[in-house]
Nucleic acid binder design. Structure first.
Lengths: 161, 161
DNA sequence: GAAGATTGAAGACTCAATCTTT
DNA sequence: AAAGATTGAGTCTTCAATCTTC
């Protein structure tokens, strides 16, 4: 596989995921949806945490959180422990919306249909490999605390051998 | 793995590949680089073919080819068999540039360093799974026939291109 | 000083439409 | 009619800078 094919593959995977997620909420920018899922699945978080985990720039996450609050999908409050921090959270009373958007499994919802032709064993092997790769890259990113969602730092990390 | 994680993973893979490729030609837009590699590795191609293979919009590919010609990295000529077609190609005398940019292997150049900590067997299994996935998705794009087990999502995905 | 809100400029892309040429 | 060049509007994003608040 050439590097050009890796780029193509990465973009197709990301795109397939985006289509899945956007199907449930047409017209909402991907960044907002990803922040929403992050909050649903990982719990209340600060802007900086969300920037690190999503890979988006700080300004983008800040805007996404503002957008989600405008939609009344989430709420924000000050961190009592550190008054500078904004904590975004999914309100308890949004049970209906949460149930519509909660915890979509990539293997079942997205990859499954695409790999339908394969024998079960190959399908599971591929999904397993993607999981392993995901966990590995996550660990490499998270290793040292990154100064906000700094793309420069991320790049340097990825390039490191 | 959640859908959000799949999107994240796909974007990281694409980004890692882009960094590799941009390292050799700073300042050149990704679309131009991908068209360039496509021409280097798959040979002379029409605009429409390049658009299909790279996944970019026709207008984007057209502009990318024009850009590459401005850089004098490629040449264009009319298709003698079909006068409407523009054929882009890498001139034979660009041996030096080609050797700098030719055929970068994703497993070695990009994934290898990222997976350095893993035992050889796992590393090869992951790279192999990515190859298989790549070939499978490519075949789904190219084929006008939908895979039989295809679900609604799948159909939507394929229709979007 | 650090978190985050906000803003402005720039880049890269899509989409849709139009025009030219074969 | 089909290929492709070109253009304009719109979207999403980064980056860098600034301002406010703890």
């Amino acid at each position: 596989m050439r590097v050009k094919d890796l780029i193509w593959l990465g973009q197709r995977l990301a795109e397939a995921g985006q289509l899945d997620v956007q199907g449930l909420a047409p017209g909402v920018p991907t960044a907002e949806l990803l922040v929403m899922y992050e909050l649903l699945e990982e719990g209340p978080s600060s802007i900086t945490e969300l920037a690190e985990r999503t890979g988006y720039a700080q300004s983008r996450v800040s805007a996404a959180v503002a957008g989600l609050r405008d939609r009344e999908w989430i709420g924000t409050r000050r961190d009592p422990a550190d008054g500078r921090r904004t904590i975004a959270y999914v309100p308890a009373d949004s049970g209906r919306r949460a149930s519509r958007t909660r915890a979509r499994d990539a293997g079942k919802e997205v990859l499954g249909p695409l790999l339908a032709d394969l024998p079960r064993k190959r399908r599971e092997a591929i999904i397993g490999a993607l999981e392993e790769l995901h966990d590995l890259l996550r660990r490499q990113e998270g290793g040292d605390t990154l100064p906000q969602g700094s793309t420069e730092e991320n790049r340097r990390l990825l390039r490191r051998r």
